[in-house]
């Protein structure tokens, strides 16, 4: 049996098992912290910073998906400071995301749109250049549109950890970072066959299945502010 640790979560004294992350504990207690790069079955990476929370005594906010609980921690998951930070993080992602939601195949099931709606995000305050990459549609199994990628690395980790195929990798750095296949080739059938792990993990429209003729777009139509 793991040791029980007592922490203060949103003003309530609660206990959790040693080794649990703040996110684990919050979710176990029914508190919803938004996440994007975090997926339960994959190793955490700490890339998106959406799940940040306030921990008393910490100079910065901490990402709840990879920070273990410690005895006596005082945690706020929805303080005004936290909400503002989350909003800006989503806005930063949207700043370089193409404005093509109207025609995007994932429009109705897009996690980024859903998070933006939950956080009541309106017109973007940040502006950056967009990434323009050619749509990779040579493979009959998946279509890649890397201009929509938010670099959450779920596809890379899924391909490595679940499919165990190591097809995808991260290349370049900074704003130019990109998920690549081999030496940045368009994905084809030689590199990857029909396994769908990455497609099902992609939170946005960067990875999708080719839509068959007459096939409807998935999900209910989402109504989003702004």
């Amino acid at each position: 049996m793991a040791k029980e640790i007592e922490v203060t979560l949103n003003d309530n004294k609660v206990t959790g098992a040693e080794g649990m992350t703040i996110l684990d504990l919050a979710r176990a207690k029914g508190i919803d912290i938004p996440t994007l790069c975090y997926v339960e079955d994959l190793l955490p990476t700490g890339a998106c910073r959406l799940c940040v929370v306030e921990v008393e005594g910490s100079r910065t906010l901490v990402a709840s998906c990879h920070t273990p609980i410690a005895p006596g921690m005082v945690i706020q998951t929805h303080s005004p400071r936290v909400i503002e930070a989350r909003r800006q993080i989503v806005e930063l992602m949207l700043a370089s995301h193409p404005d093509t939601c109207l025609v995007c195949d994932k429009a109705n099931i897009c996690e980024l749109r859903k998070i933006a709606a939950d956080l009541d995000i309106g017109l973007p305050r940040f502006r950056t250049r967009k990434h323009y990459f050619a749509i990779e549609d040579v493979s009959p199994y998946l279509v890649r549109d890397m201009s929509k990628c938010v670099l959450c690395r779920r596809c890379i980790r899924g391909c490595n950890e679940i499919a165990k195929k190591n097809v995808l990798g991260m290349a370049y750095r900074g704003f130019d970072s990109k998920v690549v296949v081999d030496c940045d080739e368009a994905i084809n059938t030689e590199a990857c066959r029909d396994c769908d792990v990455c497609v099902s993990l992609c939170p946005v429209g960067a990875l999708s299945k080719p839509r068959k003729v007459e096939e409807k777009r998935r999900g209910k139509v989402q109504v989003i502010k702004g």
């Binding site: 097809v167 370049y172 690549v180």
Partner: peptide, 21 residues
């Protein structure tokens, strides 16, 4: 890069990733 990937038993994507960083 492909040769290196083979020698080290790594994926070419990962080798390319380091080379471009």
């Amino acid at each position: 890069l492909a040769n290196l990937a083979r020698t080290l038993d790594m994926s070419l994507s990962d080798v390319y990733g380091v080379a471009t960083f």
